[in-house]
Design a protein around this nucleic acid. Structure first.
Lengths: 225, 225
DNA sequence: AAAAAAATATGATATTTATCAGTTTTTAGT
DNA sequence: ACTAAAAACTGATAAATATCATATTTTTTT
C-alpha cells in the first residue's frame, strides 16, 4: 500500500499543509479504493464520514432537481479532495458523487481530518483557501447559468475540458462524457445538447467519433454567442 | 464609538470565535461607516484590504456579465461578513457590493483578520464553516438557475425574502427591491420580471404598492411551476 | 453473432424568454 | 408644486429552448 508521506497528489490540495508525522498517522488509517466507471461514491443525504483524496480518474458532483434532472455542479479530478464540504459543516452530503471513469481514491476517516483541522492551523487555513477558490468558481457558474445561452455554455464547457484534461494523440478530448452529461453540465435538455453539438460539427468547430469529441476550431468556439 | 467586545452582531459570523483580548484589539483598529442606499462599497477588481461586518442594512453582491447585465449572486445582510472571500484568496474582489438600503458597517483591516486567522484556530475553523455554508448555498443557486423556470425562481425569491426579511405592519416585505434587482437575482430580462410580477398580481398571489410587495398567497407561490 | 438495451440523432411543434418600441407612473431635484 | 429623469408597465414579435415522437447508431449482454 502506498504511503501518504511519499504521495505527490497531496501537493494539489490542502493536505500539502501536513507535516511528516501527520502524514504517517494518515497513512495508518486511510484506505485505498478502486472505483469503477459509473459507480456511486456517495449520494445526496448519505453520511460520508470522511474525505476522499482523488489519486486518479474523474467524478461528477451533481444534485437532483425537482423535475428529476441531475445538475452537474462540478467535476472532481486527480488531486482534488471530495467530501470536505459536508465534513466541515457536519452534515449529510448535499450532492451525489459518481465516477465518470475508473478512479483510484484514498479515503481518510472524518476524525483524522477533524483532528488536523483543529490542531494544525496551516491545514485549516489551506482548507479555507481551497474552499474560497471553490466558492469563486461556483459564483462564476451562477453568472454563466443566468446570463449565457445554452450554446455559449456548451462551447465554454468544451474549452474547459480541453484546457483541463487535454487531448490524446489523435486530438480527441482526454475525457469522454455522454451527451446526457454535457446536458447536465450546461443545464439543458439532452436533445438540446445533442442538437448544438451537431450544429458545432456542421460548422466545423468540432468533430466526433462516437462519444469522443475533437475540438477543431477553439477560436471560433470562444466567439460563440 | 461602539466596542466589538459588546457588539452582539459578531454572534452571527465567524467573529464569534474571538476572545475578549482579540476583540479589544479589533475595536482599536476597526472603523465604523454609514453607507447610503445605492452607494458602491467595492467593485469587481478593487482591492478590498479588509472585511466588513454588517451591523445594519442590506447590500447586493453582483457580477457584471459579458452582455452588460449585472447578476446578483447573494444578498448580504445584518450579521454577515463581506469581503472575506477575496481576503482569504488574497485577490482583488471578484464581485461588486452595492448598498440596497442605508447601512451601518464596521471595517476591519486585512492584517488584523489575517493575524487572527493564523493564530486562532477556532476563528479559522469557524470561518471555514461559514464558507462551507456559503458554498452549499451557491450550489443550490446553480441547480435552481439550471433547472427551474424564471417564474419558479421569482416565486422562490419572493418567499426567500419573506422568510429572511419578514413583513411590516401592513404585510409588505421588509425589503424593497427594484424590478431590475428582481430581474438580476433570478437572471432574466427586466421586462420579464415585471411581466411575471404583474401576472402574480392578477392571480392574487401578491399585491403591490409602488415598489412594495405583499405576499398574499404563499402556498400558491410555492406550487408555481 | 444475434438480440436487447442504451445512447445518439433529427424533425415537428409548443412553450418560454428576450428584445424592441412605446406609454404610464413614480421618484427626485429645483 | 413643477419638471426632468428614472422606473414600471404593456404589446408585438423574434429567438431560444423544451418536449414529444420516432429513427438510427452504438454498446452491452447473451
Amino acid at each position: 500500500m502506498s504511503k501518504c508521506e511519499q504521495c505527490i497528489i497531496r501537493q494539489f490540495n490542502a493536505l500539502r499543509a501536513l507535516q511528516k508525522d501527520d502524514l504517517i498517522r494518515l497513512s495508518g488509517c486511510k484506505t485505498t479504493h478502486t472505483i469503477k466507471k459509473g459507480e456511486i461514491i456517495f449520494e445526496e443525504g448519505d453520511n460520508v464520514n470522511g474525505v476522499y483524496c482523488i489519486k486518479d480518474g474523474v467524478c461528477k458532483l451533481s444534485k437532483l432537481s425537482a423535475n428529476g434532472k441531475d445538475q452537474i455542479v462540478k467535476l472532481v479530478v486527480r488531486g482534488d479532495l471530495l467530501g470536505q464540504r459536508s465534513l466541515i459543516s457536519d452534515e449529510a452530503a448535499n450532492l451525489s458523487a459518481v465516477a465518470i471513469n475508473d478512479m483510484q481514491v484514498c479515503f481518510i476517516p472524518k476524525h483524522e481530518i477533524i483532528h488536523d483541522l483543529t490542531h494544525n492551523i496551516n491545514f485549516s487555513v489551506d482548507m479555507l483557501k481551497d474552499m474560497a477558490e471553490e466558492l469563486k468558481l461556483a459564483d462564476k457558474v451562477i453568472v454563466d447559468m443566468a446570463q449565457k445561452s445554452v450554446k455559449q455554455r456548451l462551447a465554454e464547457t468544451l474549452l474547459y475540458l480541453q484546457t483541463n484534461f487535454g487531448e490524446d494523440d489523435n486530438g480527441f478530448l482526454n475525457i469522454v462524457l455522454t451527451r446526457d452529461d454535457y446536458a447536465n453540465i450546461v443545464g439543458t435538455a439532452t436533445e438540446s445538447a445533442i442538437r448544438i453539438l451537431s450544429q458545432f460539427k456542421k460548422e466545423g468547430l468540432i468533430s466526433t467519433e462516437g462519444k469522443q469529441i475533437k475540438i477543431e476550431n477553439s477560436k471560433a468556439l470562444k466567439l460563440i454567442e
